[in-house]
Amino acid sequence: MLTEVTAVRYVTPLREGGSLPGVVEAVDGQGAYATYVMKFTGAGQGRKTLVAEVICGELARRLGLRMPRLTQILLDPVVGLGEPDQQVQELLKSSGGLNLGMDFLSGALGFDPLAHGVDAAEAGRVVWFDALINNVDRSWRNPNLLLWQGGLWLIDHGASMIWHHNWRTAATASAKPYDATDHVLGAFGPDVASAAAELAPLVTEELLTEVTAEVPDVWLTDEPGFATPDDVRHAYVAALLPRAATIHERIALGEPQPKGAAT
């Protein structure tokens, strides 16, 4: 299970994200303080966004992709009483209890495809991974990639696995191809075949079971159509496992030109 920390100070909202994540300071059980980007149960799609963040983020890490460490953050809404923004106040009030934290990568830069290069092997691994989780939010308009300490880091997977918003159609939806024609790394010649050969064998039922176990029960309880949180976890495994084996055969690649790029 993800480490649990307690929020002690709300620092500032991050207005780049539609769900209005915020920077918070939190303390762990040993009294150590750290800064996190916090995503709230009361925002946007609610807990399903956080479930996607955990499953995809922890899967990325286990596949060797760079991903900021995730934690559970216990929030008492009184932490934000001094925040003057009414929207933030309402978000905090509706998000008491467990929320999701991501290590704040101080000094990280947003990835710009016009200014930074990525080799074909790394681009292939990221594109293959995004195809696996059906990530529709890694375009050149919104890369959701950071450069930190010389490496490329993946963030923001809440819009992935869209099938979990309608489990009755999950099997059909998870079997669909992946449109990467607008992917931010599409113009870097991603070597998807090599990525699939390297990563697909690692995506086993055991690995997916381990990853889904990281999701707190409270975010899976009372999911319509499921009796227990473990039943929901099994549904995620059932959607991702067969997709890993064949999705590389169904990735539509292109070379989109970001606005302002030379032609």
Rank of each mutant, 00 (worst) to 15 (best):
154 L>Q: 09
227 A>M: 05
61 R>T: 11
162 I>N: 13
240 L>T: 11
122 E>H: 07
167 W>L: 02
27 V>A: 02
5 V>P: 02
65 L>G: 02
124 G>Q: 02
1 M>I: 12
22 G>W: 00
177 P>A: 07
158 G>D: 10
192 V>D: 05
124 G>D: 00
216 P>L: 13
262 A>R: 14
145 L>Y: 03
178 Y>N: 02
163 W>N: 10
181 T>R: 15
147 L>A: 10
209 T>S: 15
14 L>W: 08
12 T>P: 01
18 G>D: 12
17 G>C: 08
212 T>N: 04
85 D>S: 15
195 A>G: 05
234 H>A: 14
18 G>F: 12
72 Q>F: 09
188 F>C: 10
262 A>P: 02
224 P>N: 01
229 P>R: 08
219 W>S: 06
49 T>M: 14
63 L>I: 04
216 P>C: 13
240 L>P: 09
85 D>C: 08
28 D>M: 08
174 S>N: 07
167 W>I: 00
187 A>V: 13
32 A>P: 03
43 A>N: 01
195 A>V: 12
218 V>A: 15
170 A>N: 00
30 Q>N: 14
139 S>A: 11
198 E>D: 13
195 A>R: 08
178 Y>K: 03
164 H>L: 03
208 L>N: 05
193 A>L: 07
165 H>M: 12
124 G>Y: 00
139 S>M: 05
167 W>F: 13
40 F>S: 14
206 E>T: 15
5 V>F: 08
172 T>V: 06
24 V>D: 00
135 N>Q: 00
256 P>I: 04
231 D>W: 04
38 M>K: 05
243 R>D: 04
106 S>T: 09
60 A>T: 04
37 V>L: 13
96 G>E: 09
170 A>Y: 01
181 T>S: 03
203 V>T: 09
251 I>S: 11
167 W>N: 01
204 T>S: 15
123 A>R: 03
152 L>Q: 03
